[in-house]
Every structure is written in C-alpha cells, then in structure tokens.
Simulated scan of single mutants.
Amino acid sequence: MIKAYAAFEAKQALQSFEYDPGVLGEHQVEIEVAYCGICHSDISMIDNDWGMSTYPLVPGHEVAGMVSRIGSKVTSLKIGDRVGLGWHSGYCNHCTACNTGDHNLCATAEQTIVGRHGGFANRVYADANSVVKIPDGIDLEIVGPLFCGGVTVFNPLVQFDVRPTDKVAVIGIGGLGHMALQFMNAWGCQVTAFTTSDAKRKEALDLGAHQTLNSRDAAALGAAAGRFDLIISTVNVKLDWHLYLGMLAPKGRLHFVGATLEPLDLNVFDLIMQQRSVSGSPVGDPLTIARMLEFAVLHNVKPVIEIFDMADVNKAIAKLKAGDVYYRAVLKA
C-alpha cells in the first residue's frame, strides 16, 4: 500500500490516504519519494479550478527521490538512481509528437495528477521514459520545482531559439518568474523584471534581472516601447496585454506559461504591423528536462525553497495560497 495525502472533495484540506497501486508495469518504475514540490497547479487541481479533477486526488508532480523498483523491461534506470518526475508520468510513444521528441505535446500523455495519484506520498509509479535522472551537483531537496516550474520557463528558451543577445522580460516574479530570471541571465540575455514593489525590485535584481520596470508607472512603460525580443508572462491574472505587446520589438514574442483563464484582449494590428507573435507552451519533454538540469548545474540555477514536513501539507498549501512562500514550497517525505 502507498501512503499519501489526498483531497476527497474540492477546496477541502488534504487527509491521510492509503491505496493499492497495483502491479508495477513492465515499463514502469517505482520512485521512493524524498521530496515533492507544491506547484500552483496542484492547488488548481485540488480546488477543481480546471474542471478535470477526480477524487480522491493525490497531488504532487514535482517529485524527487530514488528508484526503488523497476519493471521487467526497463533498461534505462536502475534501483538506487536519483530521479525526478514532473507533470507527465507516461506517453503513448507512437504519435507524431512522441516520434519527433516532443513528448510533452503528446495528446494522450498521462498526467501525473490527472486521473491518477501523484507525489504527495511515500511512493509513486511512472513510466520509465517519463522519469529523468538527477545529475550530481543538485540536491534532492531543491530539484523538485525544476521538474515543472523550472522546465516551464526554460523550455521557451530552447523552442524559440532565444539568443544570448536578446532583450527579455518577465511578468510575475514568483514561483515561476524567479526561476525564469535565473535561467535567462545565465543564458546571456539582457533581463528585465516587471514589478510593483521596492522589495520585489531588490529580489529581482538579486535573482538575475539587470533592471526592473514598475508595471504601474505609465511613463516608464511608455519609454520601453519596442524594446523586448521576448516577454514571458508567468501570472494567472488578466493584465493589459495591449500595453505589453507595445513593448515588443519587431518580430518580438509575448509568451504565456502562466495559465490565465480569461480571454486575451489583443489588437491584431499590434501583431501585424510589427510582425509580432503571441504564444504559449507547457512543460518540456524529458530530453529538455535533462538538458535543463545540466544547465542548472553548470550555472548554479537553484529554486528558492521553503521546506515543510509532508504531514504539514495543509499548512504549506495555506501559506502558498496566501502568497507567503518565497518562492517554492517543498514537502519532505
């Protein structure tokens, strides 16, 4: 039996829960969970904000631990390997996306906390090809958030061939944004953080921003017209997207990794006249996750975390909902 913490209905506290995971599949591995990050997506699933939650629901898709068992046909991993598991725990392995290496775009990919149980537990199952080895040089306690939040902001740098000379900016200096600043700085870009407070301004500069812009200062924003090659939005709220489009250089891109649920109000002429783009992307494929981890080791990119015992999961969730965690909450199993 696997011991876990589960939500039994939307918007309720998690409770102790045990379940039988069944027979380990021949292509699966069992991970003994050491740490598991808490992502805002976990809260969205607990509260059924996206309308696809089923209960009981064991959240947790930023898993770091050790392989404790392997299926009979698994050759890529061995017992004792340090590994991580992110948003996906399995792929079809035969669609066009999988065959071209874009496993994260597989339409039938198994999502770690959608219709199955995740990593707020002592153990979790996953297909071996969705599990990524953790390189030496990264502590297990900090690596979990890289498997979702980290790769979510790293993936666009790879997908859109962002150049070291590009001028980039980040909207939202929180759980995603604080890692985006680090990755973009290490990538070699000139990095700007949008912020509204002096406290966040200093934190953004410490994390890798070269400068900040006050998103409530109309004059400063106006002076930034046409400046940025890439703006990444990590927030889940509605903003004046017309304003941010105006700050893009010709052929610039406004890219969404934060799941705002409201429709985007955009003026098409803002796109047409300067050949600008608006796009979005999910987490990365396993190869991109592995490359991100190597990059993080080389450039000392580390999520800023606060650790809670797994038994204090409800306390951690409450702090995250209140915005009192800087910047990622991590559960210790």
Rank of each mutant, 00 (worst) to 15 (best):
I79K: 15
Y91E: 09
V143N: 01
V162Y: 02
I79C: 14
I138Q: 09
G144Y: 06
I134H: 03
L105K: 15
C36D: 11
D81T: 10
I43L: 14
N48H: 02
N155A: 12
Q111E: 12
M52R: 08
A126N: 01
H117S: 07
E141M: 15
V151E: 05
S41A: 10
I173F: 06
V132Y: 03
G119D: 05
V153P: 00
R69N: 14
Q159P: 04
T152F: 02
T75V: 12
Y91F: 13
C106E: 01
A107T: 14
N93G: 08
E62A: 05
K73E: 13
H94V: 15
I43E: 01
D42E: 06
C148D: 08
T152G: 07
M45H: 10
T112F: 03
V83A: 05
G51R: 09
S41G: 14
R82K: 13
H88L: 13
L77R: 07
G172D: 08
K73Y: 10
T100P: 11
I38E: 00
D47Y: 01
D81P: 06
R116V: 06
G71N: 08
S53F: 00
G137D: 10
D47I: 00
S41I: 04
A128K: 07
V153F: 00
A107H: 13
A97Q: 15
D127F: 07
M52L: 12
L146E: 01
Q159R: 12
R69Q: 15
A97K: 11
G90Y: 09
R116F: 07
P59A: 04
G90S: 14
C95A: 14
D49I: 01
R82T: 11
H61A: 05
L146M: 12
V74H: 06
D139K: 11
G71M: 09
S44W: 09
N129H: 14
M52A: 06
G174Y: 01
G144C: 06
F120H: 08
P56A: 09
R82W: 09
A126K: 02
G90E: 08
V63N: 06
P156T: 05
A126H: 04
V132C: 08
G65N: 03
G90D: 09
H88M: 15
Q159W: 11
M45C: 05
A169M: 06
G101I: 12
C95P: 11
P156M: 07
N104S: 14
F160L: 13
V143Q: 04
C95Q: 12
R163D: 12
K78W: 11
R69I: 08
W87V: 11
D161Q: 14
Y125D: 06
V74E: 05
I138P: 10
V131S: 03
E110L: 14
S89W: 04
H40A: 04
R163H: 12
V58W: 04
H40E: 00
A64T: 02
G174H: 02
V143S: 03
H94W: 13
L140Q: 10
S53D: 01
I142S: 14
P56V: 07
S68I: 02
N99A: 13
V58Y: 01
H103I: 08
L85C: 12
N48I: 00
L105N: 11
D47Q: 00
I43K: 02
A109C: 05
